[in-house]
């Protein structure tokens, strides 16, 4: 039993090393393309845009945070996806308060949806480790395009 635990620890260490290695390579590659100053300016401008989306649509900003974090802040894909969630949290709190005060949050429907979201979120973090994200992402974007077009058709 003890040996198994030790083996797991070693495996984890190797995994961490791999990730660090990837980070370094990515940093090295990306530094050449953009200077530090342009990266910083782009980060600020795009972040303001993310905030605008979050306020206007109540979501969808997280999707743009991931490329900001990977390309402009040199984070690995997995780290960027996790960090994006924490980035959106303060934005959702501030704009959520504005929506709440205006009376747009209806508890009878919203409460149940929220319960589902919490459950789904926990499932999502565990699935994130196992599934290859690219296949899922392509399917998801397909669904997004479909949803967007059908919304246009019904509302126009």
């Amino acid at each position: 039993m003890k040996n198994q635990n030790d083996a797991e620890k070693v495996l984890k260490k190797i995994e961490n090393l791999k990730f660090k290695g990837n980070d370094d390579i990515e940093k090295h590659d990306k530094k050449k393309i953009l200077s530090k100053k342009t990266k910083f300016a782009l980060t600020i401008i795009l972040s303001a845009f993310v905030g605008a989306l979050n306020g206007l649509f109540g979501g969808g900003g997280g999707m743009l945070v991931v490329p900001i974090l990977t390309i402009l802040c040199n984070l690995s894909e997995q780290k960027a996806h996790s960090s994006a969630i924490l980035t959106i949290l303060p934005l959702s709190i501030t704009s959520g308060i504005v929506y709440l005060v205006r009376g747009d949050f209806v508890l009878s429907s919203g409460g149940w949806v929220s319960a589902g979201v919490i459950l789904g979120g926990i499932i999502g973090t565990f699935v994130m480790k196992k599934l290859s994200n690219n296949t899922l992402a392509v399917i998801f974007y397909g669904v997004m395009i479909f949803a967007g077009i059908s919304m246009l058709v019904t509302k126009l």
Binding site: M63, S82, I85, V117, G120, G124, T125, V127
Partner: peptide, 10 residues
């Protein structure tokens, strides 16, 4: 929630 928990914009 599942999509959001994966950091893909739920």
């Amino acid at each position: 929630g599942i999509i959001g928990g994966m950091g893909m914009g739920g």
